[in-house]
């Protein structure tokens, strides 16, 4: 074995010995911090989820330009972490011209959620339809009575 060959073998052995040490020197670091997150659930008033709807997020200090965007999942849900700004965050969920906006107050205390609109039960809706129908019927009868009165006087 020549001196060059010995030197090469020695270099290879040294490299083999030190390589694991080099790999182990990539230590893992973790930084953990708490943050306020928002969980959205968007659905139509028929109960159907707004699947894959687009979400636009507006920060409290700039309610005109979007702070961030997202897309809901198949169930109409989306979770994300807010920035450090405190105040009223706004979230608009929209899909094919339909959508709604929700505002969330974020401050030093726990966030308070305010919903866009309360979902009405079918009972409430039927009462409303009945009331409007009653109003229309009254209008119709009133107009008919006036007409009959005019015809009679003529």
């Amino acid at each position: 074995m020549t001196s060059h060959t010995r030197l090469a073998a020695l270099a290879i052995c040294a490299a083999g010995c030190f390589t694991p040490l080099v790999a182990l020197s990539h230590a893992a670091l973790i930084e953990a911090e708490t943050a306020q997150a928002v969980r959205l659930h968007a659905f139509y008033d028929t109960g159907e989820p707004m699947s894959h709807a687009q979400v636009i997020i507006y920060a409290p200090d700039n309610p005109v330009s979007a702070w961030g965007q997202g897309v809901t999942d198949r169930d109409g849900r989306l979770e994300f972490v807010l920035g450090p700004e405190t105040g009223r965050w706004s979230f608009q969920v929209r899909q094919s011209g339909h959508g709604a906006m929700v505002h969330v107050e974020v401050g030093d205390d726990a966030p308070v959620v305010t919903a866009t609109s309360s979902a009405q039960s079918w009972g409430q809706r039927l009462v409303m339809v009945a009331l409007v129908g009653w109003g229309a019927l009254g209008t119709a009868l009133f107009a008919l009575a006036r007409r009959k009165g005019r015809d009679a006087s003529a």
């Binding site: 339809v129 109003g135 209008t139 119709a140 107009a143």
Partner: peptide, 16 residues
């Protein structure tokens, strides 16, 4: 005014 009864009823149908 003769049309008002029909208009009132159809407005309700449209609303509902």
């Amino acid at each position: 005014q003769a049309e008002i009864p029909r208009v009132a009823m159809l407005t309700t149908v449209f609303f509902a």
